[in-house]
Structure formats: structure tokens, C-alpha cells
């Protein structure tokens, strides 16, 4: 049975209509990618990470910030793009506690206090490079799992960091994917480590052309 690509209807009502089967396939891609990424982080921190099942949302652009809870909450964002024929972004969002505790866990220096960190400039270069490296590791493992599975080339860029409100953090990604459509497809997985107060979310945000392309590759390669 082939995945019916004609079923991706996004011109008429500007929504993205996928069949349940297509959604399951995309969710599974998200599961494989995030599973690999989270295993890598678990090895680095030497902690067991709880991860949620991956979910998929097709939502209007203006609701995107609300996917992540209180839009005024200040969080760390790690934002990466990929270079190549597929066009997507990976946005990681972590609570302040998550990032500061990770830095403290990985370094022997003075422990950072969460209250004092209000801006990226409040962190020293070494801490910033740790965050950047965590972002790199997760995105690298996420994308290489997808690349292996689909036999395609995916090269992630160096991640961009920010500490800001959820509303402000998500605005660039919303703008990127809302030029033609009013709806965006987001595949997200949450991760948690209780004892470290680590709480984060990994979002895979593809362009509609990439969704179509990925489904086509899977359909051909796995004869679905």
C-alpha cells in the first residue's frame, strides 16, 4: 500500500491535511530522531532521561507560542537549521533551570545561580559554548538518525542561542514557516530529568515541501 501523496491538501483552505497513516509515519520519524538525540544527551550527563511519545500538531501560526505553555515564561532556545535539499528547523526549548543545572553538572567551576542569569551576556563564554555543544549533540544525533533511515544527506548548521520569553523565541520560526501557509506542522518530543529539574522540548519543524519529500522517500524506500 502506498502513502497517498495526493492527500496532502494545503492549497484550498491553507490547512495541511494528512491521513492518519501519514501522521504515524512522521511521528515515527520524530521518535527515531529524538530517541537518538536523547540517548546521546543521557550518555553525556550520565543520567536517565524520561522522554514522551512524539506528538504531531498541525496548528494555525498564531497558536504556536501557546503550544509551549505560558508565553511570558523566560526560557532558553536553541535553534538550528539544516543545509541541503530538505528545509527544516529544529527548535529546542529548555527551562532556565534545565540549562543552568546542565552547565553546573558538566563543569567544576563556581556553580551558577539561576536568579542572576537574565541574559545570555550574564553567562561566560565557556558556559555559552557548553549550551551550544549540547544543542549540537542533540541536533546532530537527531538528523543523523533521519539521514541513515532515509539514506539522504542532512547537515545541521551551528545552533543559534537565545534566552527570552516563549512568545518572542518562537516568532522567528513562525515567520519562517508562515509565508505561504496559515498552518504549520510541528513534531515534538518532551524530555525530563526529575533530579536535575531538566525540562525541555525538541521540535522538528519542516516546510510543507519537506513533509511531502520525506513521505515520498519513505513510500519508495520502504514500499509503503
Amino acid at each position: 500500500m502506498y502513502l497517498d501523496l495526493n492527500n496532502i491538501n494545503f492549497e484550498k483552505d491553507k490547512s495541511i491535511q494528512l491521513t492518519e497513516k501519514q501522521k504515524d509515519v512522521l511521528k515515527e520519524l520524530g521518535n527515531i530522531g529524538s530517541g537518538n538525540a536523547i540517548t546521546a544527551l543521557s550518555d553525556l550527563l550520565k543520567k536517565k532521561i524520561e522522554m514522551s511519545l512524539t506528538s504531531i500538531d498541525i496548528i494555525p501560526f498564531w497558536k504556536i507560542p501557546h503550544l509551549f505553555g505560558d508565553v511570558t515564561k523566560e526560557v532558553f532556545g536553541i535553534y538550528s537549521k539544516v543545509i541541503g535539499e530538505n528545509d527544516f528547523r529544529i527548535l529546542q526549548i529548555y527551562t532556565k533551570e534545565s540549562i543552568i543545572n546542565m552547565i553546573n553538572n558538566l563543569t567544576e567551576f563556581d556553580k551558577k545561580s539561576i536568579k542572576k542569569i537574565k541574559d545570555l551576556n550574564d553567562l561566560d563564554d565557556f558556559s555559552v559554548s557548553i549550551i551550544s555543544e549540547i544543542g549540537n549533540i542533540l541536533v546532530g544525533h537527531y538528523t543523523s538518525a533521519l539521514a541513515n533511515l532515509l539514506s539522504i544527506s542532512i547537515i545541521p548548521s551551528v545552533p543559534d542561542l537565545a534566552l527570552d520569553t516563549i512568545g518572542a523565541l518562537t516568532s522567528c520560526a513562525i515567520a519562517k514557516f508562515s509565508k505561504k501557509l496559515d498552518f504549520t506542522l510541528i513534531i515534538e518530543t518532551t524530555l525530563k530529568i526529575e533530579e536535575m529539574e531538566l525540562d525541555g522540548i525538541l521540535c522538528f519543524i519542516p516546510s510543507i515541501e519537506t513533509v511531502e519529500n520525506l513521505l515520498k522517500i519513505i513510500s519508495l524506500k520502504y514500499n509503503m
Binding site: 535553534y79 538550528s80 528547523r89 518572542a168 516568532s171 515567520a175
Partner: peptide
């Protein structure tokens, strides 16, 4: 019109 991320996609601001 801020640039939240310094490099990626924020030229839009």
C-alpha cells in the same frame, strides 16, 4: 522587530 536569535531567520524583524 527584534532579532531574538542573532543569525537565523531573524532578519525578518
Amino acid at each position: 522587530g527584534a532579532s531574538i536569535f542573532k543569525n537565523l531567520d531573524c532578519i525578518i524583524g
